[in-house]
Design a protein around this nucleic acid. Structure first.
Lengths: 340, 340
DNA sequence: TTGTATGCGTTATCAA
DNA sequence: TTGATAACGCATACAA
């Protein structure tokens, strides 16, 4: 039988209320009493019961806000599925969830969504735009007692409670590891990134580069183009790159626009001698994987990201659990046709 | 606000007890009353509150038994860690866990452990030995109301509640996919299995073979040896195989004995021209991966297996949740040095 | 500074 | 066949 507050109260010769005040540091307790209660609690090895806490938490009517730049980006479908699952579990605590979505990365738009949710919620899950104003807003919210959990992207210099998402640097390292194995460590590599303005994309390229430097010294990056996450641009830029550097025999596609990039490879007649590694797994990528055009893709488990971010929020509100790492890193997985 | 039994009772003009009897099919309710209550519950969209159930479950003093052939097999260290984590969470329901371990795969030993736990537990998590007597015992337990969850290995023709573990066939497919990419689809492959008597090992080889047949037709399996999960035997057998078939330039190591197998490869001076894919990630495998001797390993996420099996048990006991698939498959992950 | 009473939602027991 | 009531463990408003 697990130890309860009631037992501690009886053994200490005080009331349950007093034990509660001691164990939750609410003050208004005589020092000697406090000492005694703590001693008894420790001796018995008291661990608070989660079900009891959960039930009591219902009365607090917690509300969690979510803001995602998910519109028109199918990557987030799975993130949202994960959040929906976590939302069902949160119902046990009487916690409600309110989600706002936006399109693109316009900081003022995100700011106004934050202001909309601010008066309603006790905690905010945010896929932050990398902008000074957003960082400041996160800090301001924290001072008002509304903590922010960043999801999918992190934001530096802010007092967010934690970050839940992938390690972009490691994702890039993994991509390079795959390409190294595929090419026996010898290739002329072209990189198709989304945008040099997006932190995550750059971090992936940095990781990729680091492995080249330390391990695969005969992989050479000969060009980097930007797709702006767009198939059209990916197509045009890739065609140009392949014309300009005909020796390219490997590609690392860092972000979206994958279908366009691969279209260009096919039309250049180079598909047979090109090792391509991509990121994530949209329906478009899936097709290209199955056809063998893309050899491997590094996936960041969007469902888990969504699920874990909301569960972390619930734990914080209900049990006061602060995540023990500041960054909850969701592993990146290597996917090939056989393990999809 | 979520709907509660109390609200249903008020709106139906009956007591909470009656609502409980209806919704949990306990009988002893007048048909008309039952109909009314069900109607009201449906209209309000009633969903039972998990925290409430959890709290009430404490009084039942549930006990879960676990039996693992884990002694001397470090693969299970992570399985057990996952179980320990789930055990902490089970404490919220007042559920206790009792674990028995054994060494090797002697069915009578396992049977006697089952008999030891039988009078104590409400559910059993078992890593079953593939034996007729064990299957029968599982069925007998089910009839007495003690359901069994198989973990890591499944057992056919039994009334187990569900299986939690990897898909060995798919693991083999994935291994072949990796080897296909590494060798550009052309290689003479040697296979080092654990034992042809162990179901999981055979299923991996079947999966491997299926991908050869359907996709990589120029991969040829030239020999299969048994390590019996032992480094010594792995070493001897591999040496022999490499002498006999000097053309072998790829290896699929299906089970343990990895260090021995690789030692033989190194001593034959063939390491530089040998693409090796292994399974799981023990400290020995880790070293070989980091040295580049093993190019990739297919891991079955032991921690998740342990965690998920116990969580599934808890859900079943507390909420009566029967898993919606008969097999809860834990994904196999491809690991290379960069994503470990 | 401390104790008491009540409620959170579900389940079980006992009485009617 | 039903209803009333008391747990389960924790949190808190209010009384003392």
């Amino acid at each position: 039988m697990a130890v309860t507050i009631k037992q501690i109260a009886e053994l200490s010769g005080v009331s349950r209320g007093t034990v509660d005040r001691v164990l939750n540091n609410r003050g208004r307790v005589k020092p000697e009493t406090e000492k005694l209660v703590r001693k008894v609690a420790k001796e018995l090895g008291y661990e608070p019961n989660m079900a009891g806490k959960a039930l009591a938490a219902i009365k607090k009517n917690f509300m969690i806000g979510i803001i995602l730049s998910s519109e028109g980006n199918e990557f987030f479908d799975d993130v949202i599925s994960g959040m929906r699952q976590a939302e069902r579990e949160a119902a046990a605590y009487g916690i409600q969830v309110i989600m706002k979505t936006m399109k693109g990365y316009h900081a003022p738009t995100q700011l106004s969504l934050i202001k909309e949710l601010e008066p309603l919620v006790h905690l905010l899950i945010l896929q932050p735009i990398n902008d000074e104003g957003i960082a400041e807003k996160i800090n301001a919210l924290a001072e008002r007692g509304i903590r922010v959990i960043t999801v999918n992207n992190d934001i530096e210099n802010s007092s967010r409670l934690c970050y839940v998402g992938s390690d972009y640097f490691k994702s890039g390292q993994t991509a390079c590891g795959c390409l190294g194995l595929l090419t026996k460590g010898k290739a002329q590599v072209g990189i198709a990134t989304g945008s040099v303005k997006i932190l995550g994309h750059n971090q992936r390229i940095l990781g990729f580069n680091q492995i080249i430097k330390n391990k695969y010294k005969e992989l050479a990056i000969v060009d980097i183009i930007e797709t702006n996450d767009d198939d059209e641009q990916g197509y045009e830029q890739t065609l140009k790159m392949l014309r300009e550097y005909p020796k390219i025999d490997a590609l690392y596609i860092v972000a979206a626009g994958v279908a366009g990039v691969c279209q260009a490879v096919l039309e250049s007649g180079k598909a047979d001698n090109m090792d391509i590694v991509a990121c994530d797994i949209t329906p478009a990528v899936l097709k290209l994987i199955e056809k063998g055009i893309i050899k491997a893709t590094i996936c960041q488990q969007p469902y888990i990201q969504g699920y874990q971010s909301l569960i972390t929020a619930v734990e914080y509100l209900v049990h006061g659990t602060v995540p023990n790492q500041e960054c909850i890193i969701i592993n990146s997985e290597i996917k090939i046709p056989e393990n999809i």
